[in-house]
Design a protein around this nucleic acid. Structure first.
Length: 588
RNA sequence: GCGCCUUUAACUCAGCUGGAUAGAGUAACUGCCUUCUAAGCAGUAAGCCAUUGGUUCGAGUCCAAUAAGGCGCGCCA
């Protein structure tokens, strides 16, 4: 739980405040309120490990040139008993501070002592946070957007755990409503096609499932008396369900009413689909704490209760037989329908009920939704309704993901759930390693358009940065094993303060940054910061490896110190990859 | 028409609450394995940070307008 960067930064602020206090008491500067100043980490490390702009921002208040202020402060700065050893005044008035060797030694020591816990922080203070992601419709297979949402949501949840939140992962199952109706209708039509004369002809031909689907798939080719309407699901999976049902139970449903047939087919296929989602996500290394079912909200009457509650707030009205919510009262551009003229609530109502359940009934401190950017217009609506219900809408945060564009042979592949031609999550994972997929989807922040080059992703080449990072880990493992074979073993008493090569120092500095990276990644809900950290860490290690030999170090002390640094780096690589739930192989 | 997002090297992208000379990776070119994994490292070349104005000690970063692209604006979800 240590964060040596934060400690150093806070100590430095203290040191500057002390110097200012002395200057005021000596009446060398006027006792005026000082503006806020920054302690920052310069991009260019020749400018020190930390820098402060105190002299520049206070120039106006003190009516003195920045350089002069910097010199005054410098004259009263006390660095004894601090983690700093040196300071310089530079440029327009920056004050640059340099960390002492002991601080770097402490970083390595801390990472080794904390082991698998190094990088964890108490930023979240144990607050309860619910991360909902993927929540794919159970009417069909998951697509590429779900693959991205899965990787981002799962890693975000993990980052939040590392940052000290109590996190639960949740999948909202849309097992009710219009799309289930459509699901039933599609199943029913496919079933009737199979039962038809033409369908039976195809059945008798002893096709395998894929060929069967292809032959019955034709829009007009067979059973024209049961055409698939424009808004039906036309994926192969629907045909498969219908065929499976037919194989198990025969044509028993063909004589039933449409309603009965839909009911039986949905009861047959939906649980299979939901189990399939769970299974496919498990393969993707995503395991949820809760599978929350929409149907539960209807059965318990929560959905209609929400309508009643909203009516009580006075922000609803009736128009043309429908119940509207006056979202414009809450700054939203348009009102929206809660209950249709036919008495059936729109999708928003169970959604409101669901979020009410998250934030009020289950009392989470925070609810995060990972959503496709095409849902962004819906967010303010949902929030306006929650506000009307007296829920603090600030507790709901939405991470919007821009669309994934699939590219094959330089051409965009259209995503379509219905066409049956879309690349699904499952086929994607058949083609590319799970490690690569999880890493790849987290390389860019959610809110940037993502171009997924299938040819490149399918290629199991070393182009993928995940190999670069894993290679660094494997390389260290091998190095340590070799040294051990020669009788050189890790010694916790090794003097780490002798590490002073540029590549050593830069590596240690980056190791020190892990807790801060976890915090900032949690704060901005951006797990891409972790993949970037991992690549940078690997790069710094490779550089160190190239310039500093452990085995052939100039002295025994240095050899032991470098070995400690290697073990520390391996630990940090392992922790970083663990956050992403990616493998850290010992051999490659 | 209104709203949200994006625009940084040939390509894909970083750039933390404004800070010092704008960074990686691909691709191109040049070096480095008798020595711990060359799936590596070092170097060269490449930029009007979309455009224009504003805010201030200081702008890729903040504000406004414009342009290009993506997405949304349903009694679909």
């Amino acid at each position: 739980m240590s964060n040596l960067i934060k400690n150093a930064s806070e100590q430095l602020r203290e040191i500057i405040y002390n110097a200012l206090g002395i200057l005021v008491s000596k009446e060398m500067i006027p006792a005026v309120p000082m503006p806020v100043f920054n302690i920052e980490i310069p991009a260019d490390k020749s400018h020190g490990d930390f820098a402060s702009n105190i002299a520049m921002v206070s120039a106006k208040a003190l009516r003195m040139p920045p350089k002069k202020i910097a010199e005054l402060i410098a004259s009263e700065i006390v660095l004894e008993n601090s983690c700093f050893e040196k300071m310089e005044i530079a440029g327009p008035g920056f004050m640059n501070f340099f960390l002492a060797k002991k601080w770097f030694a402490d970083v390595v020591k801390t990472s080794l002592n904390e082991g698998d816990d190094y990088g964890k922080t108490d930023y979240g203070k144990g607050k309860r946070i619910l991360v909902e992601f993927v929540s794919a419709n159970p009417t069909g297979p998951m697509h590429i957007g779900n693959a991205r949402g899965g990787a981002i949501g799962d890693c975000l949840a993990s980052v939040l755990q590392w940052a000290g939140y109590h996190v639960e992962r949740e999948f909202y199952v849309n097992d009710a409503g219009n799309q289930i109706e459509k699901f039933g209708k599609s199943l029913s039509l496919r079933y009737m096609q199979i039962c038809s004369e033409e369908g039976q002809k195809i059945c008798s031909l002893d096709y395998n499932m894929e060929d069967f689907c292809k032959s019955i798939y034709g829009e007009e080719g067979n059973a024209p008396e049961f055409p698939m309407p424009e808004d039906s699901y036309r994926g192969m999976d629907i045909i498969e369900h219908a065929k499976n049902y037919f194989d198990e139970y025969g044509a028993v449903l063909s004589g039933q009413s449409e309603e009965e047939r839909k009911k039986f087919l949905v009861e047959y296929a939906l649980p299979k689909n939901i189990a399939g989602l769970e299974n496919d996500l498990k393969k993707y290394r995503i395991v949820y704490d809760n599978w929350f079912r929409e149907s539960k909200l209807h059965e318990s009457g929560e959905t209609m209760k929400i309508v009643e509650k909203l009516k009580e707030t006075g922000h609803t009205y009736e128009q043309e037989g429908a119940v509207w919510f006056k979202a414009t009262d809450f700054g939203v551009d348009k009102d929206f329908v809660l209950v249709r003229a036919n008495g059936i609530p729109t999708y928003v109502v169970p959604d409101i009920a669901y979020h009410y359940d998250k934030l009020v009934t289950r009392n989470f401190d925070k609810a995060i939704n990972v959503l496709g950017a095409d849902h962004h217009g819906y967010v303010p609506r949902l929030k306006s309704a929650l506000t009307a219900l007296g829920v603090d809408a600030e507790k709901l945060d939405v991470v919007l993901m821009q669309m994934v564009r699939l590219v094959r042979n330089g051409e965009t592949v259209k995503l379509s759930k219905r066409s049956g031609k879309a690349i699904t999550l499952v086929t994607l994972l058949d083609e590319i390693p799970i490690d690569a997929a999880r890493f790849f989807f987290n390389m860019r922040e959610a809110n940037s358009q993502f171009e997924f080059d299938l040819d490149l992703a399918v290629e199991k080449s070393s182009q993928n940065p995940v190999y670069y990072v894993q290679y660094a880990h494997a390389r260290i493992c091998s190095l340590i094993a070799n040294l051990e074979a020669e009788g050189i073993k890790y010694n916790p008493e090794a003097d780490l303060s002798i590490l002073s090569e540029k590549s050593e120092i830069e590596l240690i500095r980056h190791i020190a940054e892990l807790p801060d990276t976890v915090n900032s990644s949690a704060k901005t809900y951006d797990p891409a910061k972790i993949t970037k950290y991992a690549v940078e860490l690997a790069s710094l290690f490779h550089r160190f490896y190239d310039s500093c030999s452990v085995k052939n170090a100039e002295s025994d002390e240095l050899r032991l110190a470098r070995l400690s640094l290697c073990i520390s780096t391996r630990q940090v690589l392992k922790n970083t990859l663990s956050i992403l739930n990616i493998d850290y192989p010992e051999k490659m």
